[in-house]
């Protein structure tokens, strides 16, 4: 059975992360990987091109050379290795998984906030601080978006947990209770 992309991403990113920590290169590696992800998302079919059997190795190597031109030595090696092992289509997953490890290492938590009305940065900051305290993170980065369907209150999604303080879910709960 071929390995699924999650397993692959976990293995490569863990190895790279351990190496980066060991060599004290975490920040530059992280920066580089974000750049690479940027490239992959800008050139949307880059991973397919690099996987395409109709292109010769030379044609593909030129792209790889360009890709790793300005990277730090570890990222350079990673790109070459991932390409050599035919895992280049998993590159974005590896970067994403690395980001997860990086965030866990630095106690950074990402959260997705939905509110019914626009909130200002002060409110956002208070929310972030309160949330950070609650889950024991040092830094919480909140991505907020508007969602009028929740009527009021706020819904915070983070790490597979949903903190639901919305009016709509409270109303649903009351409805369920009355129907019982």
């Amino acid at each position: 059975m071929s390995l699924d992309k999650m397993t692959i991403a976990k293995r490569y990113s863990k190895a790279l992360f351990d190496l980066a920590v060991e060599k004290n290169q975490l920040e530059p590696v992280y920066e580089d990987l974000q750049q690479i992800k940027q490239v992959f998302s800008e050139v949307s079919d880059l991973d397919q091109i690099l996987d395409d059997v109709r292109l010769t190795d030379e044609q593909k190597s030129t792209i790889i050379v360009d890709l790793k031109k300005d990277a730090t030595v570890y990222v350079k090696n990673l790109i070459q290795m991932v390409y050599d092992y035919g895992r280049i289509s998993n590159m974005v997953d590896i970067v994403d998984q690395f980001t997860v490890l990086y965030n866990a290492y630095n106690h950074i938590t990402y959260a997705e906030l939905s509110t019914a009305v626009e909130i200002d940065s002060d409110q956002k900051k208070r929310l972030a601080d309160g949330f950070a305290k609650r889950i024991g993170a040092q830094k919480v980065i909140i991505n907020s978006r508007l969602d009028p369907s929740i009527i009021g209150g706020a819904v915070l999604k983070s790490n597979g947990l949903v903190y639901d303080g919305s009016i709509s879910s409270k109303m649903a709960k009351i409805k369920q209770m009355l129907l019982k």
Binding site: K157, G160, L161, V162, Y163, D164, G165, S169, K170, K173, I174, M177, L178
Partner: peptide, 15 residues
């Protein structure tokens, strides 16, 4: 029935 309703933050683990 509504007296039994408790307002609390709803924390759910989702996938």
């Amino acid at each position: 029935q509504l007296e039994g309703y408790q307002d609390e933050l709803n924390v759910e683990e989702t996938g």
